[in-house]
Computed example of a mutant assay.
Amino acid sequence: MRLGIDWGGTKIEIIALSQDGAEMFRQRVDTPRDDYVGCLQAVKFLVGAAETATGETGTLGLGIPGSLSPKSGLVKNANSTWMNGKPLDKDLESVLGRPVRIQNDANCLAVSEATDGAGAGAHVVHAIIIGTGSGSGIAIDAKAHLGANGIGGEWGAITVPWLKSDEFPGPDSWIGHKGVIDRWCSGTGFQLDYKEKTGNLLKGHEIMALKRSGDPVASEIYARYVSRLARSLAMSANLLDPDVFVLGGGMSNIDELYQDLPPAMAPYIFSDTFDTPIRRAVHGDSSGVRGAAWLWN
Results as ranks from 00 to 15, higher is better:
Met1Gln: 03
Ile5Asp: 02
Lys11Gln: 13
Lys11His: 15
Glu13Lys: 14
Leu17Ser: 02
Leu17His: 00
Gly21Asn: 14
Ala22Asn: 14
Ala22Arg: 15
Met24Gly: 12
Arg26Glu: 08
Gln27Asn: 10
Arg28Asn: 13
Thr31Asn: 13
Pro32Gly: 11
Asp35Cys: 12
Asp35Phe: 08
Tyr36Phe: 14
Val37Cys: 04
Val37Glu: 13
Gly38Phe: 04
Cys39Arg: 01
Val43Cys: 11
Leu46Lys: 05
Ala49Asn: 04
Ala49Phe: 01
Thr52Ile: 07
Thr54Val: 06
Thr59Ile: 02
Ile64Ala: 00
Gly66Asp: 07
Leu68Ile: 15
Ser69Arg: 11
Ser72His: 06
Ser72Thr: 15
Gly73Ser: 10
Leu74Arg: 14
Lys86Pro: 07
Lys86Glu: 15
Leu88Arg: 07
Asp89Pro: 02
Asp89Trp: 02
Asp89Gln: 15
Asp91Met: 08
Asp91Leu: 07
Leu92Asp: 08
Arg98Gly: 08
Arg101Leu: 12
Ile102Gly: 08
Gln103Asn: 14
Gln103Val: 03
Asp105Met: 05
Ala106Gly: 06
Ala106Ser: 12
Ala106Val: 06
Ser112His: 03
Glu113Val: 02
Thr115Lys: 01
Gly117His: 01
Ala118Leu: 01
Gly121Met: 10
Gly121Glu: 10
Val124Trp: 03
Val124Thr: 15
Ala127Asp: 01
Ile128Leu: 14
Ile128Gly: 01
Ile130Thr: 15
Gly137Val: 03
Ile138Tyr: 00
Asp141Ala: 11
Lys143Tyr: 04
His145Ser: 12
His145Cys: 12
Leu146Thr: 10
Gly147Lys: 08
Ala148Met: 09
Ala148Lys: 11
Gly153Leu: 03
Gly156Asp: 10
Ile158Val: 15
Thr159Phe: 00
Trp162Leu: 05
Ser165Lys: 15
Trp174Val: 08
Ile175Thr: 07
His177Ala: 15
Lys178Gly: 02
Gly179Trp: 03
Val180Gln: 04
Arg183Phe: 00
Ser186Trp: 05
Thr188Phe: 05
Thr198Arg: 08
Leu201Ala: 14
Gly204Phe: 05
Gly204Pro: 08
Gly204Met: 07
Ala209Leu: 13
Ala209Met: 13
Leu210Trp: 02
Arg212Val: 01
Ser213Trp: 00
Gly214Trp: 09
Asp215Gly: 12
Pro216Val: 09
Glu220Gly: 12
Tyr222Cys: 11
Arg224Glu: 13
Arg224Val: 08
Tyr225Thr: 06
Tyr225Gly: 11
Tyr225Ile: 07
Tyr225Lys: 09
Val226Lys: 08
Val226Tyr: 05
Val226Ala: 12
Ala230Phe: 09
Ala230Thr: 09
Arg231Ile: 03
Leu233Cys: 07
Leu239Glu: 09
Leu239Ala: 15
Asp241Gly: 12
Val244Ala: 11
Ser252Trp: 02
Ser252Met: 06
Asn253Gly: 13
Glu256Gly: 09
Tyr258Ser: 09
Gln259Tyr: 07
Leu261Met: 04
Pro263Leu: 11
Ala264Tyr: 06
Met265Val: 08
Pro267Thr: 11
Ile269Gln: 04
Phe270Ile: 12
Phe270Ala: 15
Ser271Pro: 07
Ile278Val: 15
Arg280Gly: 02
Val282Gln: 10
Asp285Trp: 02
Val289Lys: 00
Val289Tyr: 00
Trp294Asn: 09
Leu295Pro: 03
